[in-house]
Amino acid sequence: MNNPSEAIDQGRRGFMRSAAGVATVTLAPGVLLHTLANAASPGPTAGEPRAVQVTDQVRYGMLIDTTKCAEGCTACVSACDRENGLDLQTMPEGADPALWDRQEARWIRKVKVQDNLTGKVTNLPLMCQHCEHPPCVDVCPTGASFKRADGIVMVDRHLCIGCRYCMMACPYKARSFIHTNVEVKLTLAPRGKGCVESCNLCVHRRDNGQASTACADACAAAGHGAILFGDLKDPASPLSQALAKLPSRQLRENLALNTGVRYAGV
């Protein structure tokens, strides 16, 4: 938690503060009152829980520079597992390990691909791509699968009935179904049998004013810095600047989903 690489992006924070101001002015009077009441306390600073609604002034996303992604390194995967309590899943007694391996939830995984023509090998982390037009949201019968105003695609597990249609619809196989009882849970990452879940861009960190995601931090700490997290709508953010310079693309861009996660070097 005291990672030096977790330096706070002041530019983005400033932007968010002004965005909050805009939201305050434009929102309904009732909400305005609520916001003013909150504004009496110190404004949103680092580590402070969010007091105002998320807005679409921000769109969170990532750039993954696959040229920096090291073969065999799984720092991002283990960091995600720790951060979101995925390593607390236990194989049920009597289960077949090979089958359980396919039933266990995973939010991010490393993939190694080779181009059929050129033979070029690429390593990359793959997770929910946080589409602007997410197929999982379209197909969800109850509206449990939703896109937050700031672009994070996530599951409201209070509404999820466990039909798994979103898993059928996701082109990235980003989602996992919880196949068994979960004994130990983290406060910041609730998890229970019978619901579907996936990467939420460390939404608890977003709402507590932290700068980055667990995977991006871990990648930086491992010395690779292949994952850059930030606000796609802020032209001054390091993410936007990097995207402006580096040629990047979406996975399955033929589907025109406008993903929030972009890849360079694939």
Partner: peptide, 28 residues
Amino acid sequence: GQAYPLSLFPDQTILESGFHDGVGGQIS
């Protein structure tokens, strides 16, 4: 239809995956 691997990377072959992504075109 589900067992047939997703076309995650068209014209590329998946060599390794941490989440059973149809390595080498393998069906589930």
